[in-house]
Simulated assay, not measured.
Amino acid sequence: MADVARAAGVSSATVSYVLSGKRAVAPETRTAVEAAIAELGFVVNTAARSLRTGRSSLVALIVPDIANPFFAQLTATLQEELRGLGLHVVVCDTRARREEERALLAEAVQQRFAGVVITPFRLLPKDLGVLTDAGIPAVVSADVPFGAVDQVAPDARAATRQALELVTAARRRRIAMIAGPRDATGGDPRLELLRALARQYGTALPGDLVVRGEHTREAGAEGFAELMDRRYRPDAVFCANDVIAVGALDKAHELGIDIPGEVALVGHDDAAFASLVRPRLTTIRYPAEEVGRAAARLLRERLDGRTAHRTVRVKAEFVARASV
């Protein structure tokens, strides 16, 4: 850095500001520094920086299923938002296992990560204590409150209400749901929200019309088959996410059940494939890009010294397509 500073005719501190982006630098000064960096072939030694600061330039993004397009988009957005801060995202897939979630938190502490962004599936709020004790900021993306931590959470009430309005306007009264597993962190808030709002539309979500499973395509197919085997079949099925809904579509085709003629189908998240399947999937859009931007903003504020915990709510939107 001293060599770059001499070549550019500036101080070493100015070179540091150009590299870190933490302070504004005049455009002509930035150009001179960047030209000197290119001429000298200077490369930042991130290992040395980590030794000096006691923290790496890495941020862990911990998700339950990287194959889910929602998390792929979240990864891309978070990476783009943090790159300008000199931070790099390491993606960790837990496969929705609590032991893996806890192991990855421990690894983040051991490697002195700059921060952690996590979508917990079976993790408990107390498990985040290892990060707090190590002074590593964390941002949780979850539907339910997760204790004294920065959090990004959905506001899906209005969108769920719109979905119910469309379903009940089509005179569907036996509403079912393929929900997540019972031992998921915080239960299944999407199920509870649907159940609470359904009563306002003169219908209910009885226990025999709720089936549970993992957030997978296979669980969606199994859950739909189970619902169709009921003595009184549902005429509308809500799904905890779009991956489950695609599994339900698979099984409907296999069983010769017309969607939406016989059964309306509603997903959640609006993954990239939701508009590609046939029929195109009606869903509740929870925008991964906005979630990623909000998580990056919270992490940046925490790294800049904010101490009070914040929760950012991201508004979900109802997307009407052809499956209702």
Rank of each mutant, 00 (worst) to 15 (best):
H253A: 13
R278S: 13
R49W: 08
R302H: 09
V91D: 03
E254W: 09
A248N: 07
A272S: 15
G186K: 00
P64K: 00
L82R: 09
A169K: 11
V43P: 09
E301L: 14
Q79K: 03
A67Q: 11
V324Y: 11
F238E: 00
A67L: 13
R49Y: 06
V312Y: 04
A106D: 14
A158M: 05
K22N: 12
R6I: 02
K126Q: 12
V211S: 10
A225T: 14
R174W: 05
T307L: 11
R302D: 01
G292W: 09
S16T: 08
Q79D: 11
H253L: 11
L82H: 08
A2G: 10
F70V: 02
R297I: 00
A72I: 12
V116Q: 04
Y17S: 11
R161C: 07
G186L: 01
V109P: 01
F42T: 06
E218W: 06
D270E: 10
A96D: 12
P27Y: 05
V44D: 05
V140Y: 01
G187W: 07
E289L: 10
T216R: 04
G207W: 06
D270A: 10
T185F: 10
D127I: 03
T31E: 14
I37E: 04
G187N: 08
A322Q: 12
E214V: 00
P189E: 02
R52M: 07
T29N: 01
L104H: 06
D208A: 10
G9H: 04
I136L: 07
G207K: 11
A106H: 14
T216F: 01
R310V: 15
E218D: 14
Y286N: 09
I66H: 01
G292M: 05
P125S: 06
V44Q: 13
A38V: 12
A72K: 10
C92G: 08
K126D: 14
A264G: 15
D155H: 06
M228N: 09
F146R: 01
I259L: 06
A179P: 00
K22W: 03
D304C: 07
V117A: 07
S275A: 15
P69S: 07
A96P: 01
I136W: 12
R83P: 00
V319C: 03
S50W: 05
F224C: 05
A159Y: 05
S323R: 05
D304A: 14
K126N: 06
E28S: 12
R306P: 15
G267Q: 04
A76R: 15
